[in-house]
Amino acid sequence: MALSFPAGRAGTKDGTSGGAGDGSEGGTLRKNGTPRDSAPLRRKKNRARLRTVGFLSPWLIGFSVFFAYPLIATVYFSFMHYNQIKSPTFVGLKNWKYVFTQMPLFGPSLWNTLWLVVVMVALRVVFGLGIGLLVTKIKSGVGIFRTIFYLPYLAPPVAATVAFVFLLNPSTGPVNELLGHLGIDAPTWFNDPHWSKPSLVMLSLWGIGDLMVIFMAALLDVPKEQYEAAELDGANAISKFRYVTWPSITPIVMFAVVTGVVQTMQYYTQALVAGKLASGVNIGPGSVIQPGYPDHSTITVPQLVYSMGFQNFNTGAACVLSLVLFAIAMAVTLLLMRKSTGLLTED
């Protein structure tokens, strides 16, 4: 039987018709056979895109001004000789070569920073989780204990460091006096290169209130029905923590570890103030502070960035140090967020 086509509905080579009844509003098809968007539909989609961009504009502006532009400028100045007075001049990889091969304090500062990241972050997470578990188990006086553990976190970093250095003063500090009465040979804390970094870790554990609150909220959010089911199966306290508590708070642990790594990579104030107070140097207007006392054991990469950029006016080397710090922080964060590390598990 011969096929006939109505007027205006002529057949095409691929067997599809090109009229209004082909399923497309514009009457045309793309090469893959899908209908083209009509003009009204395109205008509607464009309005939706503009509306989305409008809602995202505060974030886009903040990202561009406070992250993208500073990062690009840092990369740019890392290849320049710039003393913040004369115009920058291109020097290629000289700043990078100087930092990695000729800067004497780069190695100690990087080692101290990584040491603090590994030890301080790990102990803060363990202590914060432990205190959170302790507070959630207390039956009476919970508000008092929460306040006691959280108050040190509210102290300003400089004031808290000054108080801690006074407590650990090897000559007049109450901690060493107490240890002396007990017959214990007390260390010199911030005046000893072997004890200076552990002393900074103790200072960070003293202000553990922020992690305590976060973990306490996560622990209270674990369904009680799961604990009751575990008890019916004969699970002890360790088994309940392993199979009930830990899977529920894993995302919070990941948050605490990642934010702790980022914060410790920027560790500056406490180490600088503790080193200067322990050395006996007065910190006043116009004084030039050389960080790292004792024996460069407390110098960190952020301190070296400030010293190179704002004391020695070597902006290029300071930018190289900043990029190294940024790269390490990104690498550690990506490593932690991989599912194969064990912190993140498949659903």
Rank of each mutant, 00 (worst) to 15 (best):
E225Q: 14
E228L: 10
G284E: 10
V261S: 05
Y268F: 15
I249M: 09
A278V: 06
V273K: 02
V244T: 00
P251R: 06
E231H: 12
E228V: 08
L220T: 13
V261R: 06
L232S: 06
D233L: 03
N236K: 00
T250V: 08
P247Y: 02
A229N: 08
S248Y: 14
Y243T: 02
F255C: 04
V262H: 05
T259A: 11
S239F: 12
K240I: 01
N282M: 14
S239Y: 08
S279K: 11
Q266S: 14
T245N: 01
G280C: 00
V261Q: 08
Q266W: 11
P247S: 01
F241R: 00
S287K: 12
A278M: 11
A218G: 11
A274G: 06
I252T: 15
Q270H: 07
S279F: 07
V257K: 00
V281N: 14
E225T: 15
L219N: 08
T269A: 06
I238M: 14
E228D: 15
Q266P: 09
Y243S: 05
G234H: 03
L219E: 14
K224C: 08
L232K: 08
Q266D: 13
N236S: 00
E225L: 13
A218V: 09
T245F: 01
A274W: 06
P223G: 08
A256K: 02
V281M: 12
S248N: 14
P285W: 12
E228S: 13
I283A: 10
I252G: 01
Y227A: 04
V288S: 13
P251D: 05
V258T: 14
P247M: 03
V253G: 01
P251S: 03
M265F: 15
T250F: 09
A218H: 06
I252M: 13
S287L: 13
Q270G: 06
A230C: 03
V273C: 04
Q270F: 07
A235L: 01
L272D: 04
L220Y: 09
K240R: 15
L277M: 08
G234K: 02
K224H: 13
L232E: 04
A237W: 13
T259L: 15
K240P: 00
K276D: 11
A278I: 08
I249D: 05
Q270R: 09
V273G: 03
V257I: 15
L220N: 15
Q226K: 12
V244F: 02
L219S: 12
G234W: 02
P285R: 09
L232M: 15
I238P: 05
Y267I: 11
F241L: 02
T250S: 15
G234S: 02
L272A: 08
D221A: 15
K240A: 04
G286W: 01
T259E: 07
Q226L: 15
G260I: 05
A237R: 12
D233A: 03
V273F: 03
T269L: 09
S239L: 14
Y267T: 10
Q226M: 14
A229K: 00
A274D: 10
T259W: 09
Y227Q: 07
V261M: 10
E228C: 04
Q226P: 07
Y243D: 03
F241Y: 02
A235V: 00
G260D: 03
G286Y: 02
